[in-house]
């Protein structure tokens, strides 16, 4: 049950290997890695700002909901902050459950939350200047898929 913000680049493969190590009751691990896009040269750097303490607490709360809802056995969430170059990993989520469906769905749920509601502020910096990014309509639609669905009793 780990949530971490980091200014430094990370290796998603190494994180996944470590996350899978020494599991006896976990039948399924799902993971997602988000990479920074260059947007055909219009973005040279992403700048991601978090509110230390507040951001981790907000993510921890939703991870707790994912744990209850999908019966997760473990999770790892790593998120970059600071300056991120195109091609670098921004976010890594891994979920562990007894069976694959719970692991896939919990990973999907956590990413939808992270993309639309997690306390981050994101700025794209490119040759034409910089601009602050807000969630796209698609991000709101993605998170809305989970609203009103009850967890299995």
């Amino acid at each position: 049950m780990t949530i971490r913000l980091t200014f430094d680049p990370f290796d998603p493969g190494a994180l996944l290997t470590e996350f899978c190590r020494g599991r006896a009751e976990v039948g399924a691990v799902a993971s997602f890695t988000g990479l920074a896009r260059a947007e055909a040269g219009s973005t040279t750097t992403l700048e991601l700002e978090a509110y230390p303490g507040f951001t981790e607490a907000a993510i921890d709360k939703i991870a707790g909901e994912a744990t209850r809802r999908f019966g997760l056995l473990d999770h790892l969430i790593l998120h970059r902050v600071g300056r991120i170059a195109p091609g670098e990993a921004i976010v890594f989520v891994a979920t562990a459950a007894r069976h694959r469906r719970e692991a896939f769905e919990a990973c999907d749920f956590l990413m939808d939350y992270l993309k639309s509601r997690a306390p981050f502020w994101k700025k794209e910096v490119g040759p034409d200047g910089e601009r602050w990014i807000e969630p796209r309509d698609q991000d709101h639609a993605d998170i809305a898929r989970w609203d009103g669905q009850r967890a299995d009793p």
Binding site: G34, L48, L114, A118, P119, F120, W132, E134
Partner: peptide
């Protein structure tokens, strides 16, 4: 006191 504009997600 923290003023938080609309969050953009990760």
């Amino acid at each position: 006191v923290a003023f938080l504009p609309p969050m953009s997600g990760g």
